[in-house]
């Protein structure tokens, strides 16, 4: 081990540091900072954290309709009678649902694919919740599918695949607009983003 804390640190602390270190975005330095913070924190705080982690793992499932993460199946969005069933927004990850909900602009339903097509990583259409999406389109009164995969190569590949599969069903397929972020300066935009924004311009 490169840091050498295991020689001077009590074994349970070292173990917690190792566990934190496994998490995404957390390096050895942050891992030890978190562990030592919890060491000094009140016992209740550590209990709450431990309980929250266990409860999350035990009590959550995937919604059988939209495959978002939920406590009750179907999830709150799918159960909400106020949502517009004619619109279906397709996203890569559950976090994308959170981001779209935060806008308050969207009142339709979702479908979470749990990934994007990437042959290099061995992720093909059959590894995503695409068959489930096609099944939904056959029974639900969806009029528009809004493809909201990420604007990168893998997200675009997924979008292209979905469009080819869905359009023959006679359902309208749209893709999130791409372009300039709010509050940005034209002169600092990279040429790809600016080019896309130009292609996607609108009448005023």
């Amino acid at each position: 081990m490169a840091i050498g804390y295991e020689h001077v640190t009590a074994e349970p602390v070292a173990r917690l540091i190792d566990e934190f270190n496994r998490l995404p975005g957390i390096g050895p330095k942050s891992a030890s900072r978190l562990a030592f913070y919890l060491l000094r924190a009140k016992p209740e705080q550590a209990q709450r954290l431990a309980a929250a982690i266990i409860e999350m793992k035990e009590k959550t499932v995937l919604c059988s309709r939209c495959f978002n993460i939920t406590v009750e199946d179907p999830c709150v969005i799918c159960r909400n009678p106020g949502r517009q069933v004619q619109q279906l927004c397709v996203v890569e990850e559950p976090l994308d649902v959170v981001a779209l909900e935060r806008t308050g602009e969207y009142k339709g339903l979702y479908h979470v694919l749990h990934g994007a097509i990437s042959p290099v990583e061995g992720i093909n259409p059959e590894d995503l919740k695409i068959r489930e999406l096609m099944d939904r389109l056959k029974v639900e009164p969806v009029e528009e599918v809004i493809i909201s995969t990420n604007p990168n190569l893998e997200g675009d590949a997924t979008a292209a695949y979905l469009a080819r599969e869905i359009i023959p069903l006679g359902v309208r397929v749209t893709r999130l607009a791409r372009g300039l972020p709010m509050g940005s300066d034209l002169e600092y935009a990279d040429e790809v983003t600016l080019g896309r924004a130009l292609q996607g311009r609108r009448d005023m």
Partner: peptide, 29 residues
């Protein structure tokens, strides 16, 4: 790299062309 991976998968599965051709997108790009 993506296109080659896909072709390799098809070769290993002894799959040939099919409807809803997944290669189309990669060909265009």
């Amino acid at each position: 790299a993506q296109r080659n991976s896909l072709l390799r998968t098809w070769r290993d599965q002894r799959r040939t062309q099919r409807a809803g051709d997944e290669l189309l997108f990669w060909d265009e790009e």
